[in-house]
Amino acid sequence: MNSNFEHYRIFYYVAKYENLTKAASAMHTSQPSVTRTIHNLEKNLGCRLFERSKTGMKLTPEGEVFYEYIAAGCSQFFKAESNLSDMLSLDNGTIYISATETALHCYLFQAMESFNARYPNVHFKILNNSTKKSIHIVKEGNVDFAVVSAPFHIEKPLKKQILREYHDILISGKRYSELKGKQLSINQLSKYPWISLTSEAITRKFLNQYFEKNGLKFEPDIELATTDMILPAVRHNLGIGFIPPEFAIDDLDSEEIFEIHVQETFPERNITLIYDTEYPQSIAAKEFLKFLSETTIL
């Protein structure tokens, strides 16, 4: 038997409306096409499914038995289509993002909050990864896009878009209070204990270059795996370190720590969006990308 789901769907609508014209209208097709499909289905099944009359289409006893199964099957298919449509829409969609911790704190959390105020039923699935891992995940098609905070190189079909710019600040705990309120050179500060990320981190390489540009070699006393661990280490007076300002707002306000003013400007950094131009985006993901392009997050 060569019947397929489209034949069964047409049979379902003809049986439901008991009229070829109404069934064709519901399916946005022509009546001759519906008539031809029913004829072929009856031929394939080897029995008549409808009794045709001037008043419409009535199911035969064989047609009634067949309809019980087809109606149950169509109900499940229609439900699946509806649920999938909701998942891909702004009513119940899910957006998958890979992001660095700096991108999350300096941009993405606030952007998600603003977007959810407009579309409260959209959900986010966030993977916290390094810039390198985030780019790889986008290439593999495992997320809709990535938001990262370190310099990187990409190739087509990947594209990038700068979402915002920011500067790291140098912070210290109370132990080094003699540094407070002064304008100091990086050379003067190099004598103090430093806290930084491990040598594998792209952000650490960025810091190495900053020191080299000023004729110094960067040799931190403490190396940590994640940026969010730098703040508590500084708070406990273990050294000084650069950190995005968003990480330190509360501690700066409470004066648990203070900002050190450095003469040599620390290079500007970017929060960057990465996406695959060949990857099909859901309605929710497309709307969030549009939102990020049109909205300023400070």
Rank of each mutant, 00 (worst) to 15 (best):
S85Y: 10
C106P: 00
S85V: 03
A72F: 04
L49E: 09
V14Y: 03
F66M: 02
N44W: 08
K79H: 11
M87Y: 08
A15K: 10
E62N: 13
R48M: 08
T21R: 14
G56T: 04
A99T: 07
C74G: 05
S89C: 06
L88C: 08
A72E: 14
L108P: 00
K58G: 06
K22N: 15
M27V: 03
A72N: 12
Y13M: 06
T35L: 07
Y96D: 01
T102V: 15
A72P: 08
C74A: 12
A24C: 04
S30D: 04
S98L: 08
S98E: 04
T37M: 14
C74T: 11
A15R: 05
A111F: 02
L20R: 09
L59T: 07
Q110K: 05
E51Q: 06
F66H: 05
L59Y: 02
P32H: 07
I70L: 05
R36T: 14
F77S: 01
A80I: 13
P32A: 11
H39M: 14
G73M: 11
A71D: 10
S98M: 03
F50Y: 04
L20E: 06
G73P: 00
K58Q: 15
G73V: 12
Y69C: 00
N19P: 03
N83G: 02
D91P: 01
T35Q: 14
V65S: 09
F78R: 04
G46F: 05
H39D: 10
